[in-house]
Simulated assay, not measured.
Amino acid sequence: MRTPILRRRVARWGTAVLLAAVPATTAVPAEALPISPLPSTGQAALWFAGHSMTGGPVSTPQPIASVTKVMTAYQVLADHPLKPGDQGPTITVLASEVTAYRAARLGGESVIPVAAGERISEHTALEAMLLPSANDMARILARWDAGGISGFVSRMNATAALLGMRNTHYADPAGVNTATVSTATDQLRLDQMAMADPVLAGVVGEKSATVPVAGTVRNSNPLLGTDGFVGTKTGWTTAAGSCLMFAAREPDRHGGARMVYGVLLGQPGGPSSGAIFASATRMVNAARAGL
């Protein structure tokens, strides 16, 4: 088994340096604010400039839908690191995976067309998974990375444990399985770590990409390019409700930029509802106002 990225960083930098790289937070209770920017339903977590805010039952694991794919991408890049601009190794799509794609499409899943013998680079496969939220590409990446989906899921859970995600359990790489559960606070930590990887941050910040067979695919996150949003991942299932992991860049007075990170889980509205994106925008605006 390859060493997860967090363990490699411990070996390279030492525990003290690693912990310093994971921002410390100061809790800011929502009720202390005149008007809370957090929604009144589901779970929410927000981080900005060392301060955090949470809302809802953030100690209770719940399904997280396609937000799961952030950990899938993080794990793939831990096992097969890429540098910005690299395409990485080539993945060959198996005939059995084409059969699985067809079954998933008939089952109403979010998938992307694939063909037997199709050759796709690691980087392009990450785009195909993360932008249109393709469940079949998540499974293809898992098989390629670990030799099988169950082995890959074990790696995901080991990495979650290393990241201190105590209320998280992954049962699949796509988020379709309702046994894949987490909390807004756990996913907030992953958001920060994932966006620290320039390749992963670059992919989730793309509005569109071109992949074999499917052609042009578009990002399911309509916030990109507005109000400083640069990521991260949408999600929806009947069991999970609407979910969103997000990141926004906030310019500072010195010409630099600071990041705002947030997670929303279990929000009302289907995949075409704009309510969750409006909630994320309110949260980012609150961060800009200094919480």
Rank of each mutant, 00 (worst) to 15 (best):
G107C: 15
L265A: 09
T99G: 09
L46C: 15
Y261V: 02
T232A: 08
N157T: 10
V22F: 06
T60M: 14
L162V: 01
V111I: 01
N157L: 13
A214R: 01
D86C: 12
V263S: 03
V28R: 09
A95F: 09
A128K: 06
A179V: 10
L106V: 04
L82Q: 04
D79V: 13
F152L: 09
Q267P: 02
A100T: 15
A115V: 13
P84E: 05
T124W: 00
A44Q: 13
V93L: 06
F229A: 06
E109L: 14
V76F: 05
A100W: 11
V93S: 04
G107W: 08
P23C: 11
A287I: 02
A125P: 02
T99M: 10
E31C: 12
S96Q: 15
V93E: 01
A45H: 04
V111K: 00
D79P: 07
R12D: 13
A78W: 09
G241S: 14
L6N: 07
T92V: 07
N157C: 12
T238Y: 10
A103L: 15
L19I: 03
P173C: 07
A115W: 08
I35Q: 14
G290N: 04
A11M: 07
V114P: 05
A95R: 15
G269R: 08
K233L: 06
L291F: 15
S208T: 12
R155M: 09
T159F: 07
A239R: 11
A65E: 02
P23E: 07
T25N: 09
K69C: 00
T72K: 07
L131V: 13
E122R: 11
A257I: 05
P198V: 02
K207H: 14
Y170E: 05
S59R: 10
H169K: 05
E97F: 01
G205L: 03
M195I: 04
T25M: 12
V70A: 07
D79K: 04
D252F: 01
T168C: 15
L264M: 08
D172E: 06
G42Q: 06
A16V: 13
L200K: 00
A280S: 01
V17I: 11
L18E: 07
P34E: 03
A201G: 11
V176E: 05
A240D: 03
H123C: 01
A179I: 08
L141T: 02
E109M: 14
A73F: 09
T226V: 12
L223D: 15
T180R: 00
A103M: 10
S208K: 12
A24S: 13
H169E: 05
M193W: 15
A115N: 14
Q87T: 12
E206N: 08
